[in-house]
Design a protein around this nucleic acid. Sequence first.
RNA 1: CGGGGAGUAGCGCAGGUUGGUAGCGCGUUUGGUUUGGGACCAAAAGGUCGCAGGUUCAAAUCCUGUCUCCCCGACCA
Length: 592
Amino acid sequence: MRMSKLFFQTLREVPADAEIVSHQLMLRTGMIRQIAAGIFDYLPLGLRVKQKIEAIFRDEMNAIEGQEVNLPVVHPAELWQRTGRWYEIGDDMARLKDRNGRELCLGMTHEELMADLAQQLVSSYRQMPFMLYQIQTKFRDEPRPRAGTIRVREFTMKDAYSFDLDFAGLDAFYPRIYQSYFNIFHRCGLEVVAVNSDTGMMGGTMAHEFMAITPIGEDTLLICDSCGYSANRQIATARKPQPPVAELLPIERVHTPGATTIAALAEFLNIAETETAKAVFLVAELAGENGKSREQFVFAVVRGDMELNETKLTNAIKARRVRPATVDEIHAVGAEAGYGSPVGIKRDQVLLIVDDLVAASPNLVAGANQVDWHLRNVNYARDYKADIVTDLVAAAEGDACPQCGAALRSVRGVEVGNIFKLGTKYSKAMGATYLDEKGESHPIVMGSYGIGSDRLMAVVAELHNDENGIQWPITIAPYQVSLVSLGTPKTPDVVEAAERIYRQLSDAGIEVLYDDRDERAGVKFNDADLLGIPIRLTVGGKGLKNGIVETKLRRTGAMSEIALDNLLVGVQALIRAELQAIDATLTEEKLV
RNA sequence: CGGGGAGUAGCGCAGGUUGGUAGCGCGUUUGGUUUGGGACCAAAAGGUCGCAGGUUCAAAUCCUGUCUCCCCGACCA
């Protein structure tokens, strides 16, 4: 491609709206342009990167016998109503009506349509297993798009869906897609960690997220450097300390004026925060009769020094969502904010859920459900009983790894992919069944697997750059080689040499971005750096005199020369070396 | 949805308190000189100052409303 003809413009100044590096660089390179919050144009250079990433998706999906399809962006409401998600999902789903008033939505994901497709086409066990995928636009009306193209509303996703006879089939396929995802990320030059994740509204039994570690990440992960345990904080567990062994003492009221926080309480009574119990009041939305939801007051108890993990709680009580209770709601169940106690509440109105460590700890200090009063020596079982006792606390930096006991490390990550064992939730809802050898009907067992190409592109730019611009890995760079001609009208021999080299390399199938613009050397070098083309060739008068062109690697800054009469071989060797550096990152992965 | 910030030329910004014909740098166009890390000289194009009302002889500037964008949080299938 001749840069004199390329539709692009680089910016010297950083657009004011862009805060994170990848967003700034992609705007400055002219790869993307923002249209509205979370909605972007992709210009030729940016689109090439995106398409190269998508080519890797295809390659890896095809390698595990995936078959590409293309399902619509606009979906009839009816399909989403059958699984109930039409009602469960709120404003994140963009809804519209056609001219006849029929309700439609923009696809946020495609489980419904894929299950419907299977329902139509699959009838026999002989047809399975199989896997379908597509690379296609999704729209999610996010409440707050941010971070350039990392969190957007309209995006491109490679979503794949597996269809198996039974769970054993799904379990056998799952490690293959897991490996395939690692291959994709490594081939894009991205290091990721896989973490166990919440299955959330997708339903299902097992899920992994692939996280790129970066401070701009929106998720918090807990990682064990000792044994490799890793999990999203939403579901991470930690080995809990042994509760002390003590004789149960009689319950005792104690006056604690103004001690509404655990810290104040512990200080006032001169005890450790570990000797207190903390009450958290929430209202959960639970599934009720015939698809409707009902609200339930939830009283959660964790040890005073620990934080409640709302995702764990939500999952434990199978709620759709939870919100903080209002003061009136707290009073209505006989509790008192700041002095909450599981002892003496209106037990029939409250779903009481207690962290397992609290249940095992003797003689804790809890509230008295009365302003300025607490209770000493509150003991589970003797003084109160919960509806559920389970792990409810958020794992934190320094906690003991649940597998090996070493200290956990907390880092931020961006989710660049996820894989779910869906099970039969969608196939049952859509009636996607098959007949086995005996003629018996069974629901198809599904899995769902997603990666966003635009987010992946942004994350790679976020992690591969320096003060001069992006450093694209050669596998996804818009061009492999940047050919900088320093020729001017006064040096026609240099111009001719550059033209000849451009033809030679292009004819050999090398992707060359040829800077034939009437610009000074500095402009061309700076643009080549900014755009992040991995290999730069400089054709100038000095080099030509000596029969060479100069080379520079964007990734390392390493410079060398290639003799003109050996040019093609030399450039191919550079490309091969860059590709090998990527190949060297490919690994065999075991499920964490 | 709660909190904070911002909308003036393609990009970055000034002007606003004290109302009086809208400015700077980069980029763009033309001509000339230059030409190995963002050149120089000269000329030029380009803005209903987010939008709508209001106050006023007069509004980018003051008042009211509204829309949009960014950041923090809530949310995130």
